[in-house]
């Protein structure tokens, strides 16, 4: 029984590890960008595209949170703009809504005038580095109420979850496999202790 569980765990560790390796590699590479990249390779915004006859209703300005995002989605579709709405800024006096929309590698700013039914759409490329950092940070802790309002963000959230849960499983199954190796126990315990001291020592020093 014990041998069968051990063998099953070893196979799961192997196959799940192989399946997850591209995701872990992607996250690992993006860490270097997150930690070290300073210069942005963002292009200058392009010329604004002016669109008239946009089907908008004044009530859109009164909505909040996800309701407002849902109300705006058909408008963005009409304008040919796709991606994650990062936030919505309302300029009440001018009956305007400013909506930044992001897909990794591209930012679009939609300036919507609810009174005149016009929109100014400005797009700019933000590049691969920004895309890497964006994906690593998303969905993130900000604007939780509306985050995940695009298909790609929901898709990404799912895969980031799979990577995180998968990695947690790999660590646990790895510990189980290591415990089975009597010859490696002493060195393993020493490294585990060293890792714990480094980790808790660093966390304590950084946060106190």
């Amino acid at each position: 029984m014990g041998k069968r569980i051990y063998a099953l765990n070893r196979d799961l560790h192997l196959y799940l590890g192989l399946f997850l390796s591209p995701f872990v590699l992607l996250f690992a590479v993006s860490v270097f960008y997150l930690v070290h990249v300073r210069a942005a390779e963002k292009s200058a915004p392009g010329l604004p595209r002016l669109v008239t006859g946009v089907p908008v209703k004044e009530e859109l300005a009164q909505l909040t949170g996800l309701d407002q995002v849902r109300g705006l989605r058909p408008v963005l579709d009409h304008l040919g703009v796709q991606g994650e709405i990062t936030f919505i800024r309302r300029i009440a006096k001018e009956h305007r809504l400013v909506i930044p929309v992001v897909v990794p590698g591209r930012e679009t700013s939609v300036d919507l005038n609810l009174a005149t039914g016009t929109a100014s759409v400005t797009e700019r490329r933000t590049g691969v580095v920004d895309a890497m950092i964006h994906l690593h940070k998303m969905p993130g802790p900000h604007n939780v109420a509306i985050r995940g309002n695009s298909a790609y963000m929901e898709y990404w959230r799912g895969l980031a979850d799979v990577s995180a849960y998968g990695l947690l499983f790999l660590t646990l199954s790895g510990i189980y496999l290591w415990i089975g190796l009597r010859a490696e126990r002493r060195v393993g315990i020493a490294l585990l202790s060293l890792g714990a001291i480094s980790f808790f020592g660093l966390v304590y020093a950084v946060s106190h």
Binding site: A160, D161, L167, T171, W178, L191
Partner: peptide
């Protein structure tokens, strides 16, 4: 393979778990 995994175990737990927290702000 074993040694690296054991040394980084607590770091991996932190980054995996906080990855989940960041993914689920609600």
């Amino acid at each position: 393979h074993y040694y690296l995994g054991l040394y980084f175990l607590f770091f991996l737990w932190l980054f995996s778990f906080t990855g989940l927290l960041l993914n689920h702000g609600s």
